[in-house]
């Protein structure tokens, strides 16, 4: 079955300039990620994985090339429009979890919902549902510092899926987790891709989780070497 394309990048180049020298992080990358698929991006450090993830997530702008999100060219959007695209279409999961330490686990999810326009009783109800979805319903009122790394990353997953974005972008989501927790998080991401037809992109170095991938993208020196 052919899945709908959620994000496509075409001929994307990213160059960082510093004084008279320039470093090319991405060099003419073409990639389409589809809903219903868990795509894993692998490659050595400095190969351009995170840069590509940032460009797909509308956090970075490409130096050249085009990026389309749900069929819309976002390359030409201004600085005010880009955050709105992220908010509406993307959910992010970070290596260091990046939960708000001053909010409880449930409130972290509520905050994401609030940003997306669901607040009050509706936000609370939806946040509880999402916490149940990631198996942490009973941890709703716990602060992140009282949760294990695996539990924190599950909360981050609940936060990322709040508001039902089509795309989940995860940067090294298992790097700070033990093997069991890492697999448990990947199972969750896989279920989001397969069960909820989301496009899930995971940047990883972790060979232990490769069997969760529907598709592997290998990068080297700013280029895709296997897709």
């Amino acid at each position: 079955m052919e899945h709908e394309i959620a994000i496509s990048v075409s001929g994307v180049t990213k160059t960082y300039s510093e004084g008279s020298s320039a470093t090319t992080a991405l060099n003419g990358v073409d990639l389409a990620v589809r809903r219903g698929e868990l795509t894993m991006m692998m490659g050595p450090s400095g190969s351009g994985k995170t840069t590509l993830l940032s460009i797909m997530g509308c956090i970075l702008r490409p130096t050249s090339g085009t990026v389309q999100v749900s069929g819309r060219d976002v390359t030409t959007l201004n600085e005010r429009q880009m955050p709105a695209i992220r908010l509406r279409h993307m959910g992010f999961i970070f290596q260091g979890f990046n939960l708000f330490p001053t909010l409880t686990a449930g409130e972290n999810v509520e905050l994401s919902l609030q940003l997306k326009g669901t607040s009050g009783a509706d936000g609370n109800k939806e946040a509880r549902r999402l916490m149940e979805l990631v198996g942490l319903g009973e941890k709703y009122d716990q602060y992140p510092r009282n949760l294990s790394g695996g539990q924190q990353q599950r909360v981050a997953v609940a936060r990322a899926v709040a508001g039902s974005p089509e795309v989940i972008l995860a940067d090294e989501p298992t790097a700070a987790l033990d093997s069991h927790s890492g697999r448990s998080v990947l199972e969750l991401l896989q279920s989001l891709a397969h069960g909820q037809q989301r496009a899930v992109v995971v940047v990883t170095h972790d060979n232990r989780i490769l069997d969760f991938a529907d598709r592997m993208v290998r990068m080297e020196d700013g280029m895709i070497t296997q897709s």
């Binding site: 955050p83 709105a84 695209i85 908010l87 708000f100």
Partner: peptide
Amino acid sequence: DHIREFGTLKAMGAPNSF
């Protein structure tokens, strides 16, 4: 002290007004 959290908010797409 909370700069990283504000960075996360921005990455998530929080509008400047928030």
